[in-house]
């Protein structure tokens, strides 16, 4: 995995796991790989993985079962809220960029609609 070297790695790992969950590569209730395995796969320090997972656990996105490992929550409401939060963050970034280009919100909607139509045709 390629990390942005100016952004905390634990934060990027959290985003990566959010993505895996929302994209359903990790399904509700599914077990995560062991911490060391994640460290080797993502080529980061075990302590960094540990920090990312601890935050995901305190957010309720992951649930620890003693002696068994970490699992994606089965709390559907929480997963829906997570998806909304992650998608909103993407739009927030785009919105801020477009505002600096002096694109009005109605124009944004139009641009987005045009773009989607264009992608569908391609």
């Amino acid at each position: 995995m390629n990390f942005n070297d100016k952004v905390p790695i634990y934060y990027q790992i959290k985003q990566y796991i959010y993505g895996e969950i929302i994209g359903e590569n990790l399904k509700a209730g599914q077990k995560l790989p062991a911490i060391r395995q994640l460290a080797v796969t993502l080529t980061v320090n075990v302590n960094t993985i540990q920090r990312a997972l601890s935050e995901l656990i305190s957010e309720g996105v992951l649930v620890t079962q003693r002696g068994k490992g970490n699992f994606v929550t089965t709390d559907v409401q929480l997963l829906v809220a997570l998806k909304k939060r992650v998608v909103t963050a993407q739009f927030s970034e785009l919105y801020d960029k477009l505002i600096t280009l002096k694109i009005s919100p109605p124009e944004m909607v139009q641009y987005l609609q045009d773009y989607i139509d264009q992608r569908k045709e391609a």
Binding site: D5, K6, P8, I9, Y10, Y11, T48, R51
Partner: peptide, 15 residues
């Protein structure tokens, strides 16, 4: 701390 450099200074370790 590596993560402090990124989080608080907004720098890569190399920077």
């Amino acid at each position: 701390q590596a993560e402090t450099i990124r989080e608080e200074y907004g720098q890569s370790i190399e920077d």
